[in-house]
Design a protein around this nucleic acid. Structure first.
Lengths: 234, 234
DNA sequence: CTAGCTTTTAACCTTACATTAACAAAAATG
DNA sequence: CATTTTTGTTAATGTAAGGTTAAAAGCTAG
């Protein structure tokens, strides 16, 4: 049972409200990471890939706008929604300047928030990903197309990859000849790190090795206790 | 210096408010056509190409939602913003279902409206450049005329396509050889995304495959969990 | 109102996937 | 070198997604 829920970063200093909102979102099948202030929010943002950020504007130390700016520096695309208690015009305008996708005045209806989240996600999904470079890799005599999820050997018939196979091989390719730490794959792909996910990953390594056998110059080496290494000899 | 301003259709039955809003928008370099009710709004919409529609929800005879639906039938892409006096949850949800781009509660700040308009226009600008005006496609030995809704094999007798068949095939053709995400079709064509619409789409995929069987070089491949891919082999 | 088309829903079946189990082999540990 | 830990690999299992056809429900023009 594979769950690929959308991940939301919620930064809200009011613990009550924050917890309630978090629970509500999680009840609606979102993975939510809750940060209690701007600093923490930015730390958590850097550590993970989020599909959406919900930021409270009024927070001590680092307000939502400042945080948004920092987030924008790291990621120009992630949607940002602001929450604010007062409907100050200047705030709204400031928010849009920073690249907000939407704006909600507290108190707001939770269903409306859900709807907006959905709308925003759909919008993002619509924006066609044209930079194919990120998704194409040469691995020895193989071509990996990570968007279309296939692996082709010397221009022959492409083999279809499952989502997990694909992401794992992509991650290995991104670290070609270098160590790809277990942890990394587990957190990025499996979003969890326990005995079973780890074993699951080993199973996928075995599958990938089978595919890659066609080119004896390509292999996946294990670095005991550390992770794996995709090497291309020549 | 000849400017080609963005064109806005404003449908608002309150003459005072409507006029004020119209003037304000025109002061900000938009061309505004003001209709006093739903009927008139639709007439004017048909007569011209607009970049944005601003619709009051509460209008006699024909409310904003009904009008929006009619507009959507003619044009699936034009952004729609609703204005409403009361912030009724049901209304907001209904609005998003019809494909609203945004929602404003009266009284609202005019600068905020401007900001939203700008944001929406920008979004559409990046989104719909390539998609917009393409209605004829060659798909292997087929010709698809998406305006007249027919599909012809090797210059033979054209087959008529239903609206949904047509839009789906068009969307696939726009992404020929590339991934056409499920989400995209569901939001663009069905404007909703749930189990049933998804299944409905699968039914249409089956129908299209039947049509396309005539040319064995053309096929619709599934990418599990992602979407479909119209490929033309040679 | 209904004939004829379109779309959705239902049903049933197949395929694709991810996880878990089971057992074997390496590597580390001490 | 015996034992524990980690990894390699294959197979079994359960579930979700997709393929397909048919029936039901919606529409719309006469």
């Amino acid at each position: 049972m594979e769950e690929l829920n959308k991940k939301i970063l919620l930064v809200e200093d009011d613990p009550n409200f924050g917890t309630v909102l978090k629970d509500y979102l999680m009840m609606n099948d979102y993975d939510v990471v809750h940060a209690k202030n701007g600093m923490e929010g930015f730390e958590k943002f850097k550590k993970d890939d989020f599909d959406l950020c919900i930021l409270d504007v009024m927070m001590p130390y680092k307000d939502g706008f400042t945080l948004a700016k920092e987030i924008r520096e790291k990621n120009k695309d992630v949607p940002i929604v602001f929450l604010t208690a007062k409907a100050m015009k200047e705030d709204v305008l400031k928010g849009y300047k920073v690249g907000a996708d939407d704006y909600l005045n507290k108190p707001f209806d939770s269903e409306v928030l859900l709807m907006k989240i959905k709308a925003i996600m759909q919008r993002k999904a619509t924006e066609t990903i044209s930079d194919s470079k990120q998704f194409e890799f040469k691995i020895g005599s193989f071509d990996l197309n990570s968007k279309l999820r296939f692996l082709r050997y010397k221009g022959g018939e492409p083999v279809k990859l499952s989502p997990k196979e694909n992401e794992l091989l992509r991650l290995l390719a991104l670290h070609e000849n270098d160590l790809m730490p277990r942890q990394l794959a587990l957190t990025k792909i499996w979003r969890d790190d326990n005995y079973f996910t780890s074993r699951s990953m080993d199973v996928y390594i075995a599958k990938l090795r089978k595919y890659l056998k066609l080119d004896e110059k390509v292999e996946i080496l294990n670095i005991h206790g550390e992770g794996f290494r995709l090497v291309v000899n020549n």
